[in-house]
Design a protein around this nucleic acid. Sequence first.
DNA 1: ATTTGTCCCTGCGGGC
DNA 2: TGCCCGCAGGGACAAA
Length: 290
Amino acid sequence: MPELPEVETIARTLAPDAVGRDIQRVEVLDPSALHPDPATFQALATGRRIESVGRRAKLLLLTLAPRDGASTEDNAEDSGAILAVHLRMTGRVFVLAPGMETDRTRAVLHLSGGMRLAFADLRRFGSMHAFTAGQGAGSIGTWPFYANLGPEPLSMNAAEFRNRLGLGRTRIKALLLDQSVIAGIGNIYADEALFRAGVRPDTPANHIPPKKRDALFAAIQAVLTQAIAENGSSIRDYRDAHGDAGAFQNHFRAYGREGKACLACGEIMRVMRVAGRTSTFCPQCQPAPR
DNA sequence: ATTTGTCCCTGCGGGC
DNA sequence: TGCCCGCAGGGACAAA
């Protein structure tokens, strides 16, 4: 399940191969994968050079340059384009070696130099979105999901995090999963951070004192930083742009450990449902809020 | 106003 | 052995 560290790893492993190449053709295998529609996607992407590969929240972002020969006449307004890939649960982005094919491929970007970039997705929840890079209609800033994204957890500070949790009694895990509150955290890293900070997933935010908020923020940063260093977590589907697995799944202390002994105290790990997600926690280390 | 449920989709594992 | 069901979960959306 690609969350922030997985998408970051994909961006890092993809960039050296993709940056500087031209998108010569967009091969559409599953029209429903391309937004706003396949024709618009092809029109926005084809003939542009990939300037950079990055990440925002759980989105992989390809920044595309204005087209070569864009004259002051007809293409004066061409300020480039942006491709945003959301992998959701089972999406993958691969650099395809010559002759190599992938399963469940939904679209292929044919790049200069014979390189191919494949977007594959078993469960077809993922999607690719094309935007103009300007401020006008069609630009990524007008995409509500993107426009409403909260700050990056690795770029914010503890004070901002404390404030973002607010004064309400919304349960803390729901806030961590809310992309408009803080961007890029999913079920795995929410559980891992809450465990490390000793905060139960259903604790109302207004029951978490400032010091505990700071501890939680530190845990979030530590978990995400270590996960990036380990190239993400590979449970089943996730691979980087070269097909290699990550290793952070070997460091899980909470996620997927229901019924097992807590690594800190030996208590049996339990699950509860918060915000519609299975949440694994230690009843001892993460005591119920009073 | 927050929060829960349903849907999207496919594979897999548990239960019987 | 084999079928059925629930679960996995990010986000949009509807509903309580």
